[in-house]
């Protein structure tokens, strides 16, 4: 049985020189099929963002094997791209130049690069804003740029680290719908980390619930809602059952007065 994205017994402990060691991931396992939309929910500091960084290749695990499509992850690669919570746009680059970043680093020539990116800028609905600088954009628009940038390098896997956490509630709703539309269009495997159970249920094929630190997979909840999903579905009985099921898994993991900030907007 070989799945598309697989994590086998990942262990990761941070050892800052002068402080106590922190075990972020312990015996962490995950299996994800190609083309799926999978969300990871868990208490603050459970290591879900850390896992994304391991998958992205920014942090090597102490032990365990992380692989994508049968290839072991040893560093960043063009088959994976991340959408960051705080957008991570280069402030001195225009929208178009930001979207081109990945292709530029792959050595794609200017002409084709521009052309490709034009398409993705259109896909995220930012046509006309190519020459704006990030500080001239709203939060939602910034994250559209982040999404276009990740898609432009044509990765197989899209990693999203609480991408909508910094947005206000309405913008967040719009972006969720947009993301689903784009996901249908682009046909990527998506790994989506979030705090919000509702967001996870609405978007995903599967929701992974993680334990508190050191993070481990606690439960895999299949989301059997039909697609395409629409806004009304959020008030359906099945939607609420799923939300409750995940909440029940999660609530035991939330320590009262948790030691970390969980106050995301």
């Amino acid at each position: 049985m070989s799945s598309y994205i697989s994590a086998e017994n990942i262990n990761l402990t941070f050892r800052p020189k002068n402080r106590e060691a922190v075990t972020a991931l312990s015996e962490f396992n995950i299996d994800i099929e190609q083309g799926q939309f999978v969300s990871i929910v868990g208490p603050s500091g459970c290591g879900k963002s850390t896992f994304l960084n391991v998958l992205l290749g920014l942090i090597p695990p102490n032990t365990g094997v992380m692989s994508v499509n049968g290839r072991t992850v040893t560093g960043p690669g063009t088959d994976r791209a991340m959408v960051f919570q705080e957008f991570g746009l280069l402030p001195w680059r225009t929208v178009a130049h930001n979207v081109e970043l990945g292709l530029e680093l792959q050595g794609v020539a200017k002409g084709p690069r521009r052309e490709t990116c034009q398409g993705f800028i259109k896909m995220v609905g930012l046509t006309g804003f190519e020459n704006h600088y990030p500080h001239e954009l709203s939060g939602g628009m910034k994250q559209r740029v982040g999404l276009a940038r990740a898609l432009a390098s044509d990765p197989d896997v899209l990693l999203m680290d609480e991408p909508f956490a910094a947005l206000d509630a309405q913008t967040r709703d719009i972006m969720q719908a947009e993301l689903l539309r784009i996901w249908h269009e682009a046909k990527k495997t998506v790994l989506f980390v979030t705090h919000q159970i509702e967001e996870a249920v609405y978007l995903s094929d599967h929701v992974i619930v993680m334990t508190k630190r050191p993070g481990r997979t606690k439960k895999l909840v299949p989301i059997d809602l039909p697609r395409p999903r629409d806004y009304e579905m959020r008030v359906s009985p099945r939607f609420n059952e799923l939300k409750l099921e995940i909440w029940n898994e999660l609530k035991d993991e939330l320590s009262v007065g948790g030691d970390e900030d969980s106050g995301h907007a």
Binding site: L56, L58, G75, R80, A81, F84, G88, L90, L105, S153
Partner: peptide, 16 residues
């Protein structure tokens, strides 16, 4: 630091 991580995630080397 975030921006450094971003470009690293797109495969940038130290020089880039």
């Amino acid at each position: 630091k975030l921006l450094i991580n971003v470009v690293r995630s797109f495969g940038a080397n130290e020089w880039q």
